[in-house]
């Protein structure tokens, strides 16, 4: 009984989607609601085929969100390249001298060429230590970088932080060389 209902409904939805594009509009609208406003323009080109599915399950909606995120990441390097990544010592979030120097340069770039831009500071750790503790540690690193930028005149409301902990290493490998490159804060222009 339930099965036949499901089939019937699936059939109706298929015919509804095939006969006219109206249902698509609904799906698109629904999606835009969950996509962060930043990436709306880029999110539109997502293949309409995928949009036909959200009625059936929630996963494709999430997929669409995830794929909507990537164009945003793709567009950032242009600006991002001018903002250098800074590095940290093991289990530390305080700023080394070289880290401060790089942050000063970054602050200059931001104040000169990126006034009003929204910058997200991503905190990362190496793979050692517990994944959960590293999330907190990564956030601490991003926040010390954020605070330093603020003291150099970058408006606090233009920066935000996110921690990825050990989830997004810059380089693979499990030696000090790799770890040192992964204990970092990156700067991503999000708008």
């Amino acid at each position: 009984m339930k099965k036949s209902m499901v089939l019937l409904l699936a059939g109706i939805s298929m015919s509804a989607l095939l006969t006219a594009g109206c249902a698509n509009k609904e799906a698109v609208k629904k999606e835009e609601a969950v996509v962060p406003p930043v990436s709306v323009e880029k999110a539109v080109p997502v293949a309409p085929v995928e949009q036909a599915q959200p009625v059936e399950q929630t996963a494709p909606v999430q997929d669409a969100v995830a794929s909507a995120v990537s164009p945003q990441e793709a567009m950032s390097p242009v600006a991002e390249n001018r903002l250098e990544t800074v590095y940290f010592d093991f289990d530390k979030s305080d700023l080394r001298q070289d880290t401060r120097d790089v942050l000063s340069k970054n602050a200059e770039v931001i104040l000169k060429t990126l006034a009003g831009a929204k910058i997200q500071i991503e905190g990362h750790t190496d793979e050692r230590g517990s994944a959960e503790y590293n999330l907190a540690l990564g956030e601490r690193r991003a926040k010390s970088a954020q605070q330093y930028l603020t003291t150099l005149g970058v408006k606090a409301e233009n920066t935000s932080v996110i921690s990825y902990g050990e989830e997004k290493p810059a380089v693979a490998g499990n030696d000090e060389g790799a770890w040192a490159k992964n204990r970092r804060a990156e700067f991503v222009v999000v708008k």
Partner: peptide, 10 residues
């Protein structure tokens, strides 16, 4: 349980 292509933890 999740299929969102993102990072899911804990």
């Amino acid at each position: 349980l999740t299929k969102n292509g993102s990072i899911n933890l804990n």
